[in-house]
Design a protein around this nucleic acid. Structure first.
Lengths: 259, 259
DNA sequence: TCAAAAGTGTTCCGCCTACACCCATGC
DNA sequence: GCATGGGTGTAGGCGGAACACTTTTGA
């Protein structure tokens, strides 16, 4: 009662790990068939069975004494050397069929965003390689399905403009921000209306500086306003401070809790 | 590489369990201060340390060879004898501070809905008791926070009308459905506009029968249309068939995947 | 015939969409 | 000047919010 029927219980302690789907805007010049930018993500090559040699999501073990989020952050760091600007829990997978005959495995999956600055080169390096999301290789385990889910989730999250700024960088023109939206949704988006909507949100701040590109009119450079109340969203996201992965999930939680 | 730095890794295998926040419409006659219906949820009294004697969410261990969802379903069944009509993963909690000095614990939390038929009596029975969500007792661990998150999530999920029908039953009048919406959101909602919106959605089907209550005009009885494509939502929900908890999470997944 | 709840009509307003149109700049 | 992207104006439409109104029933 209250603890369950003892005779039915078994000591079921499958392995637990964290994995991360991490997204970035593609390199300069990259574009999808329709001309808009694309999202890319890094994968790591497996060096042991099962699926040795296949590409897989970066991941690792839980760290003792650390939050799940910290474990995800460190797993990402140790496999890809990336430091995400945004990190949020996605879903926990634990279906017995997913390990394809191996040991039962529970994976707590996070999704993350990095800015362009982190993606110095998209070339293969050791066992890490970036791929455009619409042209992925065969993946180990059920990682393809996990990525599809993460992409869907990122589209529905994009309505919060600060998420988009995580991909584009601290300062940006409205055209650049517009590119991010098109890259994530895959849909063309009227630039004129996009401008108005963004400016009307009150979250953008004009830096006063201009970006000159080619022979056309220079564009105003904006910055995301981080002032005001924290996002009252109940989704446990965290903006990870570069070099400060000590951010406790607990802190993120309490800052986001209502009342 | 790809697996992490071996010297940094430790065998970190904290306990894993599932917990369930399960919601139902309050008993007849129950209403909040503003007169609309309220949501209630069942809690179980802990019979061991820590927090012995405190109220806590129903939960249990993972079952070997079963999906996470099945484990949640069975944990709920064995502790409360309830069979939810809707079950969806909520969040995974694993912060080291949450066990208050006990062993590290990862909890995969589900949220669920039951219809009124299951809530035969809201009275205390053994170590299970129902509480209105706006008047909860002190809870064990971080369960209060988990419940707050589940309530927030249920509000944002309510826009899918089939979720609401899980609370009200197979057949219902528009007034009853309206009550559910008010109970979940806690906000008054214009009944006239609500009617139109629901009917315009095309998801409701008139059974042709009427419900006579008191001396007023009888109300048309509707049913939710389950025909057409499955919800193309990427949220891994499952409608659990009563007596058929064998529904594989995998099935739910593939049915909901696009393309 | 009256109270109570079901159900309908109508107006107003804000937001989104589409698309036409000016503006600033480098070549 | 003129091509190129930056930036603004504006008309139409859809949908939600508010609320007055009619209908059907039992007492």
């Amino acid at each position: 009662m209250g603890i369950g029927n003892v005779s039915e219980r078994r000591l079921a302690q499958p392995g637990i790990g964290v994995s991360v789907v991490i997204l970035a805007l593609g390199p300069h010049g990259d574009s999808a068939a329709n001309g808009s930018s694309r999202l890319w993500l890094p994968l790591v090559r497996r060096v042991r069975q099962p699926f040795m040699g296949s590409w897989a999501l970066p991941g690792g073990d839980l760290r003792v004494g650390h939050s799940l989020e910290e474990s995800a952050f460190k797993a990402l760091e140790s496999t890809t050397e990336l430091h995400p600007k945004y990190l949020e829990q996605l879903y926990t997978f634990g279906d017995p069929s997913r390990s394809s005959g191996g040991l039962p495995m529970v994976s707590i999956v996070y999704w993350a965003l990095v800015g362009e600055a982190e993606t110095k080169d998209f070339a293969e390096k050791d066992n890490v390689k970036w791929f455009p999301v619409d042209d992925l290789p065969d993946l180990a385990f059920d990682h393809r399905r996990i990525i599809d889910y993460a992409l869907w989730r990122s589209r529905s999250k994009l309505e919060y403009p600060d998420i988009a700024t995580k991909l584009v960088g601290e300062e940006f023109t409205l055209s650049q921000l517009h590119d991010v939206y098109e890259a994530v949704t895959g849909q063309p988006l009227d630039l004129a209306n996009f401008r108005r909507k963004m400016l009307a949100s009150g979250h953008l701040e004009d830096t006063g500086r201009k970006l000159h590109v080619g022979r056309s009119r220079p564009a105003a450079i904006y910055r995301y306003r981080h002032d005001g109340e924290p996002r009252m969203e109940f989704t446990f996201p965290t903006t990870v401070e570069h070099g400060k992965p000590e951010t406790r999930a607990d802190d993120a939680l309490s800052a986001l809790m209502p009342s």
